[in-house]
Design a binder for these strands. Structure first.
Length: 429
RNA sequence: GUGGUCGUAGCUCAAUGGUAGAGCUCCAGAUUGUGAUUCUGGUUGUUGCGGGUUCGAGCCCCGUCGAUCACCCCA
């Protein structure tokens, strides 16, 4: 049995979990399309060089990498942005700008798993390429907010942490800090809320800065700062600025971000960030060796932390229940009350399914009571009983418990008609 | 990659170093043409895995794998 276990950090999706996953996918997809994004997909496996090119050698420690049978160094993708940059730059002339693209798929990171962090996780990526305006940044932040609201996560449950990398590059320039310290400095800022003040002060003094000075600069970077003016005006007009909080400590790691950076995080449970992203105007040029210089911005939202947040948020649970009720189970259960009528029942099953009705029945003889219980278990709205009355059949409404006789040759049209009626009955109470 | 805690039936958990159990779930019957409740019966284990100590190990020791937490990292 031990040998049957899943690989460390990987998950099985049993039907209940798979339904939840599909709910998340459907919500991501429908909101992205509402914003005019089109879906794309990239390979799950790429050359390890693709990721080295972007971030350098040190990231291979977190890379799910190995050699294939021809000794090529390949990696399971840790993120989709490098693949997107390749796709966008190699065929950028084929697409009108701005390109609003989204993707949903698995990513892999070789890390120590714990709650909210697995080795395989699913990400929703939304990116806009070919537009350097702050309107694009606003569009992405608005999309991230509307996704959260669509999940039933409300304004008191989450917020957007917003910053801009240029705040810090300007600051370092003003403080005359050499450019080679930028990466080190951003790492310090990233941890400033978690690390001990003395340690932070020591690290800062090594590059000629003081903690007081940095803190004062962060405090001054509020929503009135000119770096946020255009974004603020845009999101205010949409009625979405109330979800945004300026937080200069958001720098999004070491990566390729050049301007606006933001995170979606929950306000009640102290979870890891639900989503994060920003502007990365230099990446396309880097990936194409300078051939295509295209502005870009985007964000990614993972399924794992989101799933934890959904399970802890009552209003989100309500939305999930509604979705599952509309998607799960069958609409109709065919009861074979008299085995002599099984052939007629099978013909009815086939005709109803051909008409698009979601339907199930017992493939072996079963007592009528069992068959009704099965109908109940599968949340069927109607039972159709094939018995001694044939060529008439019973249609029973399992919610109101009323039943009536109908001629077998009128069965399909009658069932299609009754399924159009709204669900009424005691189950809704 | 480093350190702490944990690992017993499908699930939630019991079991002084002395015969591995309960509840729930699942299956069947009570009930041969109608869903609930109830009752009755039944299936389910190399106690994560491998060694060691002991007359005897689910329990103690070592290793290993996994889960979880803190580091690390968070593209």
């Amino acid at each position: 049995m031990a040998s049957l276990r899943t690989v460390k950090g990987f998950r099985d999706f049993f039907p209940e979990e798979c339904a939840m996953r599909n709910y998340i996918f459907d919500t991501w997809r429908s909101i992205a399309r509402r914003y005019g994004f089109v879906e794309y997909e990239a390979p799950v496996v790429e050359t390890t060089d693709l990721y080295r090119k972007k971030s350098g050698d040190e990231i291979t420690s977190q890379l799910f990498c190995f050699k294939d049978k021809a000794d090529r160094e390949i990696s399971l993708r840790p993120e989709v942005t490098p693949s997107l940059a390749r796709m966008a730059t190699t065929r950028h002339r084929d697409f009108k700008k701005p390109m609003k693209w989204f993707q949903i798929g698995s990513c892999f990171r070789y890390e120590e798993p714990q709650e909210g962090r697995t080795r395989e996780f699913i990400q929703f990526n939304a990116d806009i390429l070919g537009d350097a305006s702050s309107g694009t940044d606003a569009e992405l932040i608005a999309l991230s907010i509307d996704v959260m609201l669509a999940f039933g996560i409300q304004g008191e449950d989450f917020a957007i942490r917003l910053s801009n990398r240029q705040l810090w590059t300007q600051y370092l320039e003003d403080q005359k800090v050499p450019a080679e310290h930028t990466a080190t400095f951003l790492q310090i800022v990233d941890k400033i809320e978690r690390a001990k003040p003395e340690e932070t002060a020591t690290k800062l003094s090594a590059i000629g800065l003081t903690l007081e000075n940095v803190r004062a600069f962060m405090a001054a970077a509020d929503e009135n700062h000119p770096a946020f003016a255009a974004l603020r005006a845009d999101l205010t007009a949409r009625g979405l600025w109330k979800y945004v909080r300026i937080d200069a400590s958001i720098v999004r790691g070491l990566a390729y971000y050049t301007g606006t950076v933001f995170e979606v995080f929950d306000l009640k449970h102290g979870l890891r960030a639900v989503a994060g992203g920003g502007r990365y105007d230099k990446l396309c040029a880097l990936m194409s060796d300078g051939n295509v210089d295209m502005a870009a911005a985007g964000f990614a939202m993972g399924d794992v932390v989101l799933g934890i947040l959904l399970s802890k948020t009552p209003s989100a649970q309500f939305a999930i229940t509604e979705y599952l009720n509309s998607q799960q189970g069958v609409e109709v259960y065919v009861v074979v009350a008299d085995e002599a009528q099984r052939a007629h029942a099978l013909a009815g099953v086939q005709a109803l399914r051909a008409a698009g009705v979601r339907l199930d029945f017992s493939m072996v003889p079963q007592k009528v009571g069992k068959q009704f219980q099965a109908a109940e278990n599968q949340k069927a709205r109607f039972a159709i009983v094939f018995g001694a009355e044939y060529p008439e059949v019973q249609i029973k409404n399992l919610v109101s418990r009323e039943q009536s006789l109908v001629a077998a040759d009128a069965l399909v049209s009658t069932v299609v008609e009754v399924l159009k009626q709204p669900i009424v009955g005691p189950l809704l109470a």
